[in-house]
Design a protein around this nucleic acid. Structure first.
Length: 726
DNA sequence: CTACCGGAACTTTTT
DNA sequence: GTTCCGGTAG
């Protein structure tokens, strides 16, 4: 299948670039070398998608493209980092193989110069390529160009929790909470709102299709959403959806659009199957006609429709952009044939399927193993035992991963790993930054950065004894009236007798860290921490552990250039709760990976365990309403299974002592997930956990290892258009 | 207006 | 077990 590069290529074998291209198969090479019109790479699981994308970027740079004019949109910052690391690796290899300029290697003088003269640091693509999520990229662009559409570039970002809280405040303010009928909770309101924005649907459409039980509340939802939009505008805060919406807005303003277009020669989008309509529109405006646009994805791995992603984006791409070249990657480099056979069979059960024939040359390997366990304890025991066995055989912990549907599914396992001093790192689920004390501390910083940020301000003020929502709101109004100077607070009397001392401390603290010269970020956090610690002790138990978290936050902050960047990055890509903050990683550090199936997207491990693979968990009984939802759960299960390279274990406890739904000691019997059909079952090696645990005896404990100058589009226009949806 | 208590409803995945 | 809401005491 792999032959010499096709004719017409400017790079030839025998040159470093030719050698680089020879590492790829025909289809991959075609994708890397493609020029001009829109390119869609349909890449099945494990078909070298990341390698192809990285080679394409590296090839473009090596043949003269300016890395600073390439935009690489990925699903997470982690994915962007990984991709750029590989680009750097490829470029470095090209460089060392190129002692002198390569005559045959195509390209103009700039590439030769790049490969021979430029200093090494200058060549690191990762520092120059625009890489990151849609949201992070939107933030950067809006800071640079927001003024054109009348957006104050010093906006702060509301994370999901803050946005929900604001929605909650307005919900109460509009009198929607005390109603004879039950008005949807703030989280549900936020879900509805968010879907409207991201799917570009009206409230009616969204409620009808996705929240039919809220049909009676459409009028009130409209009022609520309108108020929500207004409040964000007044406070100069943007939520996640606004970041995309205003980026979209930038591109509808001809002047702003020109500046944004002028920045990029090449746009690449990873995980395209998980983009939503708003994102697709942004891309089409960014690359009119799809010229110089590369999208990569796999419809069989679409797992984010709950976030308004639509698989139609990838399926309709060739119709929407008629010049599209479609390259399909079907050769799997990741998994062994027995694993592929099983995963293909799971996917074969899908009601709507776009056929892809994944094949591999890795014929040999163990059948995936299906392990029913007596109960959760046995499952935990089986996982730990098998992980350690693999490690004995030479596989580091970090090459093994345990995957599950919901974050809390790993709780028992986490406890046991901790008890035995087996290091692990967990991705997905509750984050460090979502804990109350961390949010408190961040609120001080956010308030200093943007004194109009109501949610941040209220949060800070309510820490004081005797201050509740009303007094906090009054003080925030005062701050907003004075041109956002904390001096406005200094002539206020203490809001309550109990808070006299704390009030003075707060006023001077805020004046200090919001001043022109507040000192470096770590020292700001330190001052906040000193002020906040006594309040924390009054409000929460576990004060000692919480204060230590804050010290870690201080340490983490030292890596960020300034407060605004720190706040934005924490909001857009918060560190995982467990280990990201545990100090500088040691080179030989080894840890087992625990991850939600969602967070496992795009990654691979030698050994993969899928736990709690019982009906009710996967598919989650939260998602068994409509066929579409069940099919998405199937794809999610498929994503989990296809992460495995050599060994795949699927486990489920037969007996649950307490089913998720309360009524404490009600126990139940679980059944294997419906996604493993009878046909699929034959492709697994069925072996109860007792077969492993019985034979080896208990394992020994392991040692721990400028405003408004465009052609009239403003934030107001965008908000108005948005409101037309309501 | 805040602080606190009891009953009721809800409980996934994430930028 | 958690968060949310309404009632009541200070």
């Amino acid at each position: 299948m792999d032959g010499a590069p096709k004719g017409g290529e400017r790079a030839t074998l025998g040159t470093p670039i030719g050698a680089m291209l020879a590492e790829l198969n025909d289809r991959q090479r075609q994708a890397v070398l493609h020029e001009g019109g829109p390119l869609l790479i349909v890449a099945g699981a494990g078909t070298g998608k990341t390698a192809t994308l990285a080679h394409r970027v590296a090839y473009k740079i090596a043949t003269g493209a300016d890395p600073g004019r390439i935009l690489l949109l990925t699903f997470t910052r982690r994915a962007a980092g990984e991709m750029l690391r590989r680009v750097d690796g490829i470029l470095r290899r090209l460089e060392t193989e190129t002692r002198r300029p390569v005559p045959g290697a195509a390209v103009g003088a700039s590439a030769d110069k790049r490969l021979s003269d430029a200093p090494a640091t200058d060549r690191a693509a990762s520092g120059k390529v625009w890489g990151g999520t849609f949201h992070a990229t939107a933030t950067r662009l809006l800071r640079l160009h927001g003024r054109t559409i009348g957006l104050d570039p010093s906006f702060t970002i509301l994370d999901r929790g803050d946005a929900e809280d604001l929605m909650g405040v307005l919900r109460t303010e509009l009198g929607l909470s005390k109603n004879d009928r039950r008005f949807p909770l703030k989280g549900t309101c936020m879900d509805i709102y968010s879907r409207c924005v991201n799917a570009r649907e009206t409230v009616e459409e969204t409620v009808e299709n996705h929240f039919p039980w809220c049909r009676g509340e459409i009028e009130d939802l409209r009022r609520l959403f309108s108020a929500y939009v207004d409040h964000k505008g007044e406070q100069s805060v943007l939520d996640y959806d606004d970041l995309l919406l205003f980026w979209h807005g930038l591109l509808t303003d001809s002047r702003a659009a020109r500046s944004v277009h002028a920045r990029f020669d090449l746009v690449l989008v990873d995980e395209y199957q998980d983009t939503n309509r708003l994102q697709a529109e942004i891309l089409q405006m960014l690359c009119p006609g799809g010229v110089n646009l590369t999208a990569v994805g796999d419809d069989a791995q679409a797992i984010y429709s709950f976030r308004a992603a639509t698989v139609r984006n990838i399926l309709d791409f060739p119709q929407q952009l008629p010049d599209t070249t479609v390259v399909t990657l079907e050769r799997n480099y990741r998994s062994t044939q027995p694993i592929l056979d099983a995963t293909n069979e799971v996917m074969a059960g899908a009601s709507e399927r776009h056929a892809k024939d994944l094949w591999t040359e890795r014929r040999e390997g163990d059948k995936p193993r299906l392990t029913p366990c007596e109960d959760e304890n046995e499952q935990t025991e089986f996982i730990i035992r098998t992980v350690l066995d693999h490690r004995e055989a030479g596989l580091a912990l970090r090459r093994q991963a345990v995957l599950f549907r919901a974050s809390h599914h790993s709780l028992a396992l986490e406890l046991e790993l901790a008890r035995r001093n087996i290091p692990f790192r967990k991705y997905g689920g509750l984050r460090f930054v979502e804990t109350a004390h961390v949010k408190d501390l961040m609120a001080f910083l956010r308030l200093a950065e943007n004194p109009r940020d109501l949610m941040a301000g209220t949060r800070v003020l309510m820490l004081l004894p005797g201050v509740g929502p009303k007094k906090a709101r009054a003080l925030m109004d005062r701050l907003g009236a004075a041109p956002a100077r904390f001096a406005a607070w200094s002539d206020c009397p203490a809001p309550s007798a109990a808070s006299a001392e704390a009030w003075n401390g707060l006023v001077s603290l805020m004046a200090d860290i919001a001043s022109r010269d507040p000192g470096d970020l770590a020292s700001q956090i330190k001052r906040i921490r000193l002020f906040y610690t006594p309040l924390l002790q009054r409000l929460y138990d576990n004060a000692r552990a919480r204060v230590m978290d804050l010290e870690q936050l201080e340490w983490l902050a030292a890596r960020f250039p300034d407060r605004a960047r720190f706040l934005a990055e924490i909001a857009l890509d918060p560190p995982a709760y467990t280990e990201d903050l545990a100090g500088p990683p040691l080179l030989d550090e080894d840890f087992l990976i625990l991850s939600t199936m969602h967070s496992a997207k795009g990654l691979e491990w030698d050994v993969v365990f899928v736990i709690h693979a019982a009906d009710g968990n996967i598919p989650s009984d939260m998602a068994t309403g409509r066929l579409e939802e069940i099919e998405e759960e199937r794809r999610l299960f498929y994503v989990a299974l296809t992460r495995a390279k050599d060994w795949l274990y699927v486990c489920y406890p037969v007996r649950y002592y307490s089913r998720p739904r309360s009524f404490s000691d009600a126990h139940g019997y679980a059944q294997l997930t419906r996604f493993v059909s009878d046909r699929a079952l034959r492709l697994f090696d069925l072996q109860p956990a007792s077969a492993t645990l019985g034979s080896n005896g208990p394992s020994a404990p392991t040692p721990g290892d400028t405003a408004g100058q465009g052609d009239g589009v403003t934030t107001e226009d965008i908000r108005r258009r948005l409101k037309d949806l309501f």
